[in-house]
Design a protein around this nucleic acid. Structure first.
Lengths: 156, 156
DNA sequence: TATTGTTATACTCTATAACTATA
DNA sequence: TATAGTTATAGAGTATAACAATA
C-alpha cells in the first residue's frame, strides 16, 4: 500500500460531488473521458490491437522515426515494455525498426504503409465527435472551442 | 488483423488536423484526456493499485454493494477478470464479498473503511481541476460548465 | 559515467471456454 | 434455459533488475 493521504480521511463528503462551476465543468468532462476510453478500447479491438499497441501506432508519423524511449514516455510505461510492443507491431508488418544515424544506440520506429492505414483508421475513429458536442448550436461549438483553446493555452 | 476501413485509405490528410470548430474543440478535449490518463495511472500507482483495481474501487459506494457483473460492465472487461481483481482488493482488505439476499447467484462487492479511505484519496486526486481550466476567468468557467451540461444533456 | 534497448523474472490483466450454482 | 461467478488456459502488458552496446 502506498502512503495514505491524511487530508482525504478528514475531508468529508468527497463523494457528494463538486460545488464550484469549474469543478462541475471538470466532472462533466470526466464523464466524457470515461465514455471516450471505451471507444478507444473498441477501436483498438476492432483492429486486433491491444490498447498499448494502438496507442503506440497512433503516435507515429509518416517518414519520421520515433525512438523507443520516446514511445515509452508517451505511453507512460517502462522502456522494457516497448521492446515487446514493437516486436508485435513489427511481426504484423505495421512498423519497422531503423537504427538512428546520429546515435547508434537509438532505434527509430517507422510505420509501414499498412501501419499508416491502420493508424489513420484508428485516428479517424477517435476524431469522431461525441454525439452531445455535435448537437450543440454552431455558436456554442465555436464558444466551446475558444474556451478550451484559451484554457490549454494558459496551461502551456 | 481486423477489417480495414476503406474510407480511411482514401481520405487524405487525416493527420493534418481538424477543420470545423466542433472538431477543433474535440481535439482539444482529447489532449486533456491524454493528460488525465497519466494522472490516473500515477494516482493508482501511488496506492499500489493496478489501473483496473483502482477503477473498480473508485466505483464503489458506502453501504452499497455493487454486483461483480456490473463492475465488469463498468470496466468494459469480461466477468472472469473481475474475480481476480476483486480477489486482490479483498486480500488487501479494501473490499468484501457479500452474497445478495435477493439473488444468491450475485455477489455484492462492498468497500471496507480502509477501502473507502483509498477510494476517497483516488477520487480527490482525479477531482483536481487541470491547471488550464483553473486559470479561466470565473465567467468563462461558468460558461464552460453550462456548455458541457447542455452537450451532455442533449446526448442523454 | 550515463543512456538506449534488450533480456529475464514475476505479477497482473485480458478474452475464451467450460464449469457450478442459482434463477 | 439463462445468468452470476469461478476456474483453467494462453497471450499480452507491466515494473524491476541486470546486461551489452554506445555515447
Amino acid at each position: 500500500m502506498g502512503p495514505m493521504n491524511p487530508a482525504a480521511a478528514t475531508t468529508p463528503d468527497l463523494s457528494t460531488g463538486p460545488s464550484s462551476p469549474v469543478q462541475e465543468a471538470w466532472a462533466l468532462l470526466r464523464n466524457l473521458l470515461f465514455i471516450e476510453r471505451r471507444r478507444f478500447l473498441s477501436a483498438a479491438a476492432e483492429y486486433d490491437l491491444h490498447p498499448a499497441q494502438a496507442g503506440a501506432l497512433m503516435q507515429l508519423e509518416r517518414d519520421e522515426g520515433l525512438p523507443m524511449h520516446e514511445i515509452a514516455s508517451l505511453l507512460a510505461c517502462d522502456s522494457s515494455n516497448v521492446t515487446g510492443i514493437v516486436d508485435r507491431l513489427e511481426a504484423r508488418g505495421l512498423v519497422t525498426r531503423r537504427v538512428s544515424e546520429r546515435d547508434r544506440r537509438v532505434k527509430q520506429i517507422v510505420p509501414t504503409e499498412l501501419g499508416l492505414e491502420v493508424r489513420d483508421a484508428l485516428r479517424a475513429r477517435m476524431a469522431q465527435v461525441p454525439e452531445g458536442l455535435g448537437l450543440l448550436s454552431a455558436g456554442d461549438q465555436r464558444l466551446l472551442r475558444d474556451l478550451l483553446a484559451r484554457a490549454l493555452a494558459a496551461s502551456a
